[in-house]
Amino acid sequence: MAERYSSFTPGGTGWFFQRLTAAFLVVALAFHFFLLHFVNHAYEVTFLGTQARMENIGYLLTMILFLVTAAFHGVNGVYNALVNQGLKGTQKKVILAVLTLAGLALVAQGTYVALVMGGMI
């Protein structure tokens, strides 16, 4: 069985980034919930209000970073959960590709939406 472990495939980078993004997301998610449910109320959201927030470049960038880290953390988390279930071989490669594409699409769409909201495009 030793030979099975002979190839060098560090899983440490993914593990480490999962933790790094987690640390950021703890703050960002709490902030996001607080801002849009307690400071502003979700039922009062209008395009005008959203636009006003997104026109602040700091806020816009924070939201995009929030999206990117959340997408990574979520997609990587799902992938790890599946690997823990014993996913392997071709299936594993296919799932990884599908999840990566889904994550990238999510980030692309979200960023586009944020830029439109902020009137950048």
């Binding site: 395009f47 959340a70 979520g74 769409q109 979200g110 939406v113 439109v116 909201m117």
Partner: peptide, 12 residues
């Protein structure tokens, strides 16, 4: 998160 972005896409 996926549904959230879809709903917010109505801003387009």
């Amino acid at each position: 998160l996926f549904t959230h972005i879809s709903v917010l896409s109505t801003s387009l």
